[in-house]
Amino acid sequence: MNGHDFPDALKQLLDEFSRSGIRELHIRKPDFELYLSTEASAARPQAATPVAAPVSAPPAQSAPAAKPASAPLTPASSLPADAVIIKAPNLGTFYRAPKPGAANYVEVGSQVQVGDELCLIEVMKLFTAVRASASGTVHAVLVEDGAMVEGGQPLFALVRD
């Protein structure tokens, strides 16, 4: 394989899509369909609408056993322009509390300082604390507790004070 097999091509496209900031990208061929959207509403299944179904393609190479990253709880478009986005350092399960039953590290509206713990990402029993890279207020929590997230996926939006 010379670096341009299907997973590579798809990954490049996904990377470029995420970086571009555009809203929507849709490809359709008779036996292949790919639909990318940053809007939460677009991810909901719609009756009789084939959505993002690469028919004859192998699964993408990064952990397809994981459930697709859940739709953001807050659409990216509603975030303030100067929001600081805290991203997942690696693929894993997103935990908002240090252990089951404990209080969440932060809630929307919490004041945080640089270095404060915001959540845990667990992969294969390795827990990594994700810390605030800026001081400010938690404006939005972008992922549901317990969801599988991809490396680089936005988790929190902070607004600097």
């Binding site: 952990a63 056993a65 994981a66 992969v123 294969m124």
Partner: peptide
């Protein structure tokens, strides 16, 4: 084979 992220490594 797939190595899922949920269990030990």
């Amino acid at each position: 084979a797939m190595i899922p992220p949920f269990y030990d490594s």
